[in-house]
Design a protein around this nucleic acid. Structure first.
Lengths: 229, 229
DNA sequence: TCGCTATGCGACGGTTTTGTGACAGTTTTG
DNA sequence: CAAAACTGTCACAAAACCGTCGCATAGCGA
């Protein structure tokens, strides 16, 4: 699933630039020129993330932000605020009104893209696809199946969720605590070392007749799915 | 590297709360009870950010702030001021004296955390980034990987943290004591010469098949990452 | 150049972290 | 209801890493 991004910006040159670049980044981009239009489009399209200029005609960015936060169905909608340099103190109010992040103009596209990825990851992990690929591993969430190198692999429920989570952020290292939170749930209490055991079981299953281990141990930090795998 | 935060607050209950929560947010927290102590600790530890109460015994928050701004090596040190409601006009003076942001008591932890993240990002983009570049060295914090000249380099936990820290302030010279505080933690006691050994190990790893040493020894002062490298 | 101090570094014993088989209790399946 | 599958914890062994020492060497002022 391609993430829908709504760009709200009144400067035509900038919004065109944003549209072009975010499109290239793989997002489905819609543009609104003022706050009023934005609110309508949000209702119509329910985007996955909003890039919102601080200064806007008709309804200001803060006001849009506030209204969205006031409605339950948009309360968690990720918002990235664009502010001009010199609106420093306003920026604070921006965070208060509930923006998830902000970017100060002028900014580079890669910076904005990074922020967008970060926010999307944070707010909606695994928003995308119901099939995860990485290296020779395929996780089919819908069918609850895992294959490696064309061979079907059977995993227990916990190992499945564990792999699924690691596959959402390939290369990234997670501490045992993070994995417990994400895979077991932040409420249950289990020993941190239990993660080791399940990582071990996952490895055994994945490597049954291969000799390349896709899981990397990072001493005193945690585990990650090896990018190079 | 984990950002070092110095909390200066004379109310024990509050400082304990701050210490606990900021620690959980992933910061290395030190606490000072008054302005005098704060100034000493700042010299010793060179924190990445200071959370400074407005009202303090001995040397007031504003005074601390002013003094820090007067010294070149602390001029850009991010400061977040804590002010009580009713000190509204003081608050203005707080910004005048050079605080980067302020938070009005009572405040929520998440609010403070957001401010801290925001200020750190603004002042020291390097701290929040998950990738540090310098010369031909790349430290990827999320993946916990280090590369030099496109070649993967394996580092033990301590060497990793050490390099990470040096990469945050390229060119700057750190004494062994400063490195111990920043990399090992201000609580553990280890021999100063231990730093030498780890610097040595770091060098060996980084220079495995290069002949340019990116680490500079400054006789009777400490070590630094060579700016030119 | 001499003498002194600071640094480089190999070696080593001790500690911490991780891998893993075993096991007993629980849940799911048939 | 019994068998099968799965779970979390433990204990022990292997592996990785750590901090310190001691000696060789380099730097520097006189």
């Amino acid at each position: 699933m391609i993430p829908q991004v709504l760009v709200v910006e009144d400067e035509d040159a900038l919004s065109a630039l944003l549209q072009y670049n975010l499109d290239k980044e793989g997002y489905a981009v819609t543009v609104a020129g003022d706050g009023e239009e934005a609110l309508v489009l949000i209702d119509e399209q329910m985007p996955d993330l909003i890039v919102l200029d601080w200064m806007l005609p008709k309804v200001s960015g803060v006001e849009v932000c506030r209204r969205l936060r006031a409605r339950p169905e948009t309360r968690n909608l990720p918002i990235i605020m664009l502010t001009a340099r010199g609106e420093e103190s306003d920026r604070i109010r921006g965070l208060d009104t509930g923006a998830d992040d902000y970017v100060v103009k002028p900014f580079s596209m890669s910076e904005l893209a990074a922020r967008i990825r970060a926010v999307l990851r944070r707010i909606r992990p695994g928003l995308a696809e119901d099939r995860l690929h990485h290296g020779d591993i395929v996780v089919d969430r819908a069918a609850h199946r895992v294959r490696r190198a064309e061979k079907e692999i059977h995993l227990g429920p916990t190992e499945f969720r564990l792999l699924d989570y690691l596959m959402q952020h390939p290369g990234r290292v997670f501490s045992r605590e993070q994995l417990l939170d994400a895979v077991w749930g932040s409420d249950v209490y289990v020993e941190a070392r239990t993660v080791d055991v399940h990582i071990g079981r996952l490895r055994k299953a994945l490597n049954r007749d291969l000799n390349a281990d896709p899981i990397r141990t990072v001493r005193s930090a945690g585990y990650s799915l090896d990018v190079a795998a």
